[in-house]
């Protein structure tokens, strides 16, 4: 079964196509990277999968359900999304733990309060990302790299079936970068997730993903297995 099935997606910003006739099938359980330079349409594609953007044409099926007004909320509860960055005022009175706990809100549902299971899920996710010591710090006060790790912890606390990561290495220091790759691989396999990582860092994708789709100017140029991608990419860098 495909976790994501996009057919002939077209989406434009003010008349300029951001996704031009894009089709993509992501089998359940796969760890797919999407590589492309700035403006290639990678973030737009993730937002379409998550239902944050609606295409003008084409069909979007996520986790076996066609994305529409009725299915949006339910699909989002099973889909965790880590955006590139969230601009927050340093004085915003919301702690890092509060942010991680937000990952649970969709599952908890309206008119209900977080229980021990929710708190445990948030704590475990923070431990995995090595950010538990930041729990009581204001989210706006911590560094960009720490914020990114908190965002990923929030997504993991959600216990999703589909994990969407948009430039997860943003602001992450080199020392933690390779550990982050290992953490993503570990969570992906232990929790039987389907994971899609968008990045302009070919090396990171080649380290972590099983296959990599390459995007340019709103189109998917092709999808390669990890080894093929490494070969193609090194050749293109040489030429």
């Amino acid at each position: 079964m495909n976790a994501v099935d996009l057919q002939n997606i077209y989406l434009a910003y003010r008349g300029k196509p951001a996704l031009n006739n894009v089709s993509l099938c992501v089998p359940s359980g796969s760890l797919l990277g999407i590589f492309g330079h700035n403006g290639a349409g990678k973030t737009t594609l993730l937002k379409v999968i998550n239902g944050l953007l609606r295409p003008a044409r084409g069909s979007v099926c996520v986790l076996g359900r066609r994305l529409n007004n009725e299915s949006f909320t339910e699909i989002r509860k099973q889909t965790a999304y880590v955006p590139q960055n969230i601009k927050v005022d340093p004085r915003m009175p919301i702690t890092a733990f509060d942010v991680v706990m937000m990952g649970r809100f969709g599952k908890i549902g309206l008119l209900k309060q977080p229980n021990t299971r929710d708190i445990n899920a948030a704590t475990t996710a923070m431990e995995l990302l090595e950010v538990l010591h930041l729990a009581d710090r204001l989210y706006g006060e911590i560094s960009g790299g720490e914020q990114q790790r908190i965002s990923i912890a929030r997504a993991i606390a959600q216990e999703p079936s589909l994990l969407l990561l948009d430039e997860p290495t943003n602001s992450i220091d080199w020392e933690f970068r390779s550990r982050l790759g290992k953490i993503i691989e570990k969570i992906h396999s232990e929790r039987a997730l389907t994971t899609i990582i968008v990045s302009h860092e070919a090396d990171f994708l080649a380290d972590v993903c099983d296959s990599i789709a390459v995007m340019d100017k709103g189109r998917i140029l092709g999808t390669w297995a990890r080894e093929e991608f490494v070969r193609e990419y090194s050749q293109s860098r040489m030429s």
């Binding site: 909320t73 509860k77 937000m102």
Partner: peptide, 9 residues
């Protein structure tokens, strides 16, 4: 955006 992505209306 994040609230929407988490399934919050």
């Amino acid at each position: 955006e994040l609230a929407l992505a988490c399934g919050v209306p």
